[in-house]
Write a protein that binds this DNA or RNA. Structure first.
Length: 462
RNA sequence: UCCAGCGUAGCUCAGUGGUAGAGCGGUCGGCUGUUAACCGAUUGGUCGUAGGUUCAAAUCCUACCGCUGGAGCCA
């Protein structure tokens, strides 16, 4: 019984192999006089394996009708190629046609636009571009775990269904088993949430941060890595309603430690992908973003710039640039402002920290100036915000005051306040958008093209 | 959700008031250790949908749908 060899392993062979078994999908066929060339791809790598199908094969007539998309199992010999372009090829003894394809198969061997491929999300991983994207996605996820595990972080699975509805991170999807045609109602006519499955209102999580804080205040260094849901009607290339997020949280850590970790993480991930996915990056550099390799090198080589919000506002005001939106202390930085800072002024990733307390959520730690909180946003060229984080308010009285100032119900946060009541410690963390990081390392410009089956407003077909 | 642009063959696009087009793909044939192969022929259309203007609409107008880019929200 011959065990299958992947295309990747076959192409990396150090010598000829008398008997190999390879299987996959036909990318293209070229006929020669007495034989046919088949390009076989099995997704194990970007490159195809060339199969020589001689006209002495009993099913040669059928082989000559193989077109793009067909699946085959090939038995034969791996030999040094006579042609240019590849060092190894398989001379087939037999070709079993497992599943034929026909002329309605939408993928051609020529380039397709990502927009078209998005409409056939079930077939697009068979394209070169998306095969590369999803191999890199897998490697990036692995590199994230590796980074944290090597540094003693504990992986925490925070809940996907959550009861807290006011984390300040946007609109939430409701989770309910209430029959919309026949809900149990209160005397005042409102739906009785106490009769719902969890005996309260529940939602899909918008962040695992609050739960991660609880675990950081026990296991010291933790991280989450899981799906996140936002019900915002966002129609941009950087937003999806279901996305993955990495949220480290560290006890006994301040904002500087937090910024150090974010910078170290981003650099580690870029370095890892450069080292482990060179073929994929080569394809992105060729067909997606010509400046990709130079930008990634730049990121690895140089320290990220760090400036306070106040300094950023000063720089923007002195820039002489005609911005569409006003630059003023106390206002949020607009996309155009962030872009100017990272793309035009510093030309590298930057971390902006210490934002006015009025524009940031309740859990961020108040600075001694009483005006700013220890927020930090890591901005990268081309994408904008990739990391958002802060040192958390660990002082019980200040946190309670924050909750009141944000008009939030203290009783809903009893367990969160307990963390400050019993053995409170300074702690900090951030959220890294997994897809945004993937966009950054691949150069792919639309978030819908780095998610296997994207969920965006009006779109959940697959 | 707001602003702008675009919907023509399976794909990428040209056609901007007067006969529906090209390249690629598919099919057939030729040539050939080819490799985004090459050469010839051929196939292929509710011009996004519905109204309207006009002798005549892919082309002009209106609405709707879809997609793309930008903005807001943020990861």
């Amino acid at each position: 019984m011959l065990t299958p060899t992947s295309v990747r392993d076959a192409l990396h062979s150090t010598g000829p192999i008398e008997r190999v078994l390879v299987q996959g999908w036909v990318r293209t066929r070229r006929d020669s006089k007495d034989f046919s060339f088949l390009e076989l791809n099995d997704g194990s790598c970007l490159r195809n394996l060339q199969i020589i199908a001689k006209n002495t094969l009993p099913n040669y007539a059928a082989v000559q009708h193989l077109i793009t998309g067909a699946s085959i199992v090939v038995r034969g010999a791996l030999v040094a190629s006579q042609g240019k372009g590849q060092s190894w090829e398989v001379v087939a003894d037999s070709i079993e046609i497992v599943g034929a394809s026909d002329d309605s198969y939408p993928l051609q061997k020529k380039g397709h636009t990502p927009e078209f491929l998005r409409e056939i999300a079930h077939l697009r991983p068979r394209s070169n571009l998306f095969g590369c994207v999803f191999r890199v996605r897998s490697r990036l996820a692995f590199a994230i775990h590796q980074f944290f595990q090597e540094r003693g972080f504990v992986y925490v699975h925070t809940p996907i269904i959550t009861g807290s509805d006011c984390e300040g991170a946007g609109e939430l999807f409701r989770v309910t088993t209430i029959d919309p045609k026949n809900p149990v109602r209160l005397p005042n006519g409102e739906i009785d949430d106490a009769k719902d499955f969890f005996a309260r209102r529940t939602y899909l999580t918008v962040s695992g941060q609050l739960e991660a804080e609880a675990f950081a205040c026990a296991l010291s260094k933790v991280y989450t890595f899981g799906p996140t849901f936002r019900a915002e009607n966002s129609n941009t290339s950087r937003h999806a309603n279901e996305f993955w997020m990495i949220e480290p949280e560290m006890a006994f850590c301040d904002l500087n430690g937090d910024m150090d970790l974010a910078e170290e993480l981003v650099k580690h991930l870029v370095r890892d992908i450069r080292e482990n996915c060179p073929d994929e990056l080569g394809l992105f550099a060729k067909f997606v973003d010509k400046d990709l390799l130079a930008r990634l090198e730049f990121v690895v080589d140089r320290p990220f710039q760090r400036i306070s919000y106040t300094e950023a506002v000063e720089l923007l005001r002195k820039s002489g640039e005609a911005f569409e939106f006003p630059v003023e202390y106390g206002l949020n930085l607009q996309s155009e402002h962030e872009r100017w800072l990272t793309e035009k002024h510093f030309k590298c990733p930057i971390t902006v920290f210490n934002y006015p307390k009025e524009i940031k959520p309740f859990y961020m730690r108040l600075n001694d100036d009483d005006r700013t909180v220890t927020a930090m946003d890591l901005l990268v060229p081309g994408i904008g915000e990739i990391v958002g984080g802060s040192q958390r308010e660990e002082r019980l009285d200040v946190l309670e005051a924050n909750l009141r100032r944000h008009k939030m119900n203290l009783a809903d946060y009893k367990w969160y306040l307990d963390l400050r009541r019993y053995g409170t410690v300074p702690h900090a963390g951030f959220g890294l958008g997994f897809e945004r990081m993937l966009m950054f390392v691949t150069g792919v410009a639309n978030i819908r093209d780095v998610i296997p089956f994207a969920r965006t407003p009006g779109s959940a077909e697959f």
